[in-house]
Design a protein around this nucleic acid. Structure first.
Lengths: 272, 272
DNA sequence: CGAAGCTTTGAACTCAGTCAACTTGCGTGG
DNA sequence: CCACGCAAGTTGACTGAGTTCAAAGCTTCG
């Protein structure tokens, strides 16, 4: 079970046998959580860090008007709340979507392992930056992509992440989120999400039913929704050119970008 | 000028005279950037970290279809690209909005100062978590708030941040972003942003013209847009209860949250 | 078998986008 | 000093993607 963590960190940086042994030791403070349970409550100041070992969880917030925003899905291998050194209370909650087991790691333990194992420390740092990058991608997604693209992007992302921690079962994937969860993540209503899902189904891009996801044509879906695997970056072995020059959008650009078009860099499109 | 950094970090953790002296030394690699210039280009792997000393900058991305998303405004005292240890190339660009001076800090220097000055290290970490928190707030904002609230939230945030680094000039603030920038940040069109601004003006909540911002009634604007200063947290001296219980939304909740309503925590609204 | 939880469907509605024109202010150059 | 061009802000009419509300189907599971 702890393997998910090892597997994930290994993606960011090669770990020694010593490192992985140290990680394995973290598995002692393991707790189980039932679906719908809060693992960490907003406003609290937990004294421990959290690593998901199995199952799916979400970061979320409920607004005054009752609507909910999910800001992240947490998969096995993901860390939450490493900011234990800050005095600030949690600004969001973490809840289990499926049955979850998570390692609750004491502050000193975190400090110790990060201090002693520089590979782990750097891998953790890299994974944090990947998370941050994913947050930015979400913003871009919600700000400038339509419903279809948002959904596609989200599914591509979860698909590849699930893949890297060995969650794939043949060509499909256990997928705990229901349509309402998807909606609260991409910033739509569940009704509209439902309609989009049907369209994607019709286009042969998606097979999602009974908590089970299949992406029959990942590449086409990725392309259609502007998903770029390297962008959210599992770090190691990068191709030399993630970004390959300006795209074809030259007419529309002027409307979106004021100022002298002299500096092309200001306008360079990315793979989204 | 370097004071902005000191000032900001000090917000997160008390710094000794020794610490501030060390920070002051960073000011040697200072570079100037003109408005619209890219300070860091997407796809590049800069060998330096960056700290804004004066002026405003943005993190942004341009999509294939030519639309732009701004994911953050960078103010004096803000750090960008501390992830120099990662192999991944930049997934976004950073550009100056106004004339900007920024300290380009070499990798070793960063490592050194963070290693020697634990206060600074912790303050930097705390500020990173505040940034991450702000990204999540942006997501919530774009996903679940209407245009008026998005704008209000953004202005409240920039207003308070500007305040903490001493950018306020009496009751107003030099405000480099134009309406198109605002639009690209909150995920709207500049036409619609214009209309919302006019409404806010009419409501006496906002006075924005000629790169100059005034918020005549911050509290009312904050309330109307769900802005909660403590949420994005400049850390120190927190009031004991940032979150004060559940709000009035009990009817709508059931539609947004499936599952047993037994665990109230799953539903607890935040100040947004 | 019944009830709860999730998905699907339809119709009316609305917030925000699109397109296109007009205004205002500013700097540059004739 | 005026003319021109350009960048930013403003306005109006039209369109459309996504919401809302409400009801009906399906599954799953005690």
């Amino acid at each position: 079970m702890i393997d998910a963590i090892t597997q994930k960190l290994h993606r960011f940086r090669a770990l020694s046998a010593d490192d992985t042994a140290a990680l394995r030791k973290l598995a002692h403070g393991v707790q189980s959580h039932s679906p719908h349970d809060d693992v960490i409550r907003i406003g609290s100041k937990p004294e421990f860090a959290l690593a998901i070992l199995s199952g799916w969880a979400i970061r979320y917030v409920v607004l005054k008007n009752g609507s909910r925003q999910i800001t992240a899905f947490l998969l096995p291998g993901d860390f939450c709340h490493l900011n234990m050194f800050s005095e600030a209370p949690m600004d969001h909650s973490i809840a289990a979507l499926s049955p979850v087991t998570a390692a609750h790691i004491k502050r000193e333990e975190v400090e110790h392992i990060l201090g002693e194992h520089s590979n782990i420390a750097k891998a953790v740092q890299a994974s944090q930056f990947a998370d941050e990058s994913r947050l930015r991608a979400s913003i871009t997604n919600m700000g400038r992509q339509d419903a279809r693209q948002r959904l596609g992007y989200m599914l591509c992302d979860l698909w590849t992440r699930a893949n890297t921690v060995g969650l794939m079962k043949g060509d499909f994937l256990d997928f705990p989120p229901i349509q309402a969860d998807i909606a609260d993540f991409v910033g739509l209503t569940s009704v509209h999400v439902n309609r989009i899902i049907q369209r994607l189904r019709g286009d042969g891009l998606l097979d999602l039913k009974e908590r089970c996801l299949r992406l029959p044509d990942f590449d086409r879906l990725a392309k259609a929704s502007g998903y770029n695997a390297t962008a959210t970056g599992s770090d190691r072995n990068h191709s030399t050119s993630a970004i390959n020059g300006r795209a074809s959008a030259s007419r529309e650009m002027s409307s979106h970008t004021r100022r002298s078009n002299a500096e092309v860099g200001f306008l360079r499109p990315i793979g989204l």
